[in-house]
């Protein structure tokens, strides 16, 4: 199972790169949906060890793959070309690759620092927490370097995916009702962010966040 988790996790990181770098928003959202499915697959792998995680897998499927993807798709109207980001494609590719590799290796090597239990220091949990935090960092990178507000929201979604995935290593015994509280917040946050982005688009005629500069000191 360790190898399967490793393969799924690596593919997951590739989808996060695609989601961040693809200039067509609908394709970026497709990459996000693929990531959501891979997340579900990873959780299913862990569910074979902890049966109550099947509910977590179902929750991820409904919220990430269905609800959030639907909200993102709904937000893209007409021309789905992204407003060019602050960082160009090739530079960004190198930066993301470097960031992802660096964070993954660091967390994987130092997993014992964050591991709350001896179990969490072992595989496949170790890989899981490394992938989760890498995903979080790639999402943060997107939030900081993308000018298109929809891509920024996608970056937030990637960060939330990383946080969600980390729960499998950090807190596999957590009650489902608490998890549902967490994912409800995430879905509502994405909905509200997209609602505000739509308002910005209507008022400014553009999703370019560089134009959000009316408020200064």
């Amino acid at each position: 199972m360790e190898n399967l988790v490793r393969i799924l996790s690596l593919t997951l990181l590739v989808t996060s790169f695609l989601a961040v770098e693809t200039r067509r928003l609908r394709e970026a959202i497709t990459a996000y949906m693929a990531q959501a499915l891979l997340m579900v697959a990873v959780i299913v792998c862990f569910a074979t060890l902890h049966p109550h995680l099947w509910v977590w897998a179902a929750t991820a499927l409904v919220t990430k793959f269905a609800l959030i993807s639907w909200l993102l798709r709904r937000a893209v109207r007409g021309d789905d070309r992204e407003v060019p980001p602050y960082v160009g494609f090739w530079v960004s590719t190198v930066l993301i690759a470097g960031l992802a590799l660096g964070v993954y290796e660091l967390v994987h090597a130092q997993a014992s620092f964050l591991a709350p239990t001896p179990l969490a220091e072992q595989e496949p949990y170790r890989t899981n927490v490394a992938v989760s935090l890498t995903l979080l960092c790639v999402g943060m990178y997107a939030v900081l370097t993308r000018r298109d507000a929809l891509k920024v929201v996608l970056g937030v979604c990637l960060m939330e995916n990383g946080a969600h995935l980390s729960l499998v290593t950090l807190a596999p015994g957590m009650r489902e009702t608490v998890l549902i509280g967490v994912v409800t917040d995430v879905v509502l946050a994405v909905f509200l962010l997209l609602y505000l982005v739509r308002g910005i688009e209507q008022q400014l005629g553009s999703r370019d966040t560089a134009r959000l500069s009316a408020l200064r000191w």
Binding site: P116, L136, L170, L196, G199
Partner: peptide
């Protein structure tokens, strides 16, 4: 809208750090 967008974005991103803090305490 600019204020609301920044408010929601900054706070949601920032509070993700607190999420890990809460989960770590629980997990420990």
């Amino acid at each position: 809208l600019e204020a609301g967008y920044k408010y929601l974005l900054l706070l949601t991103v920032g509070i993700t750090a607190a999420f890990f803090g809460c989960v770590l305490l629980y997990a420990a």
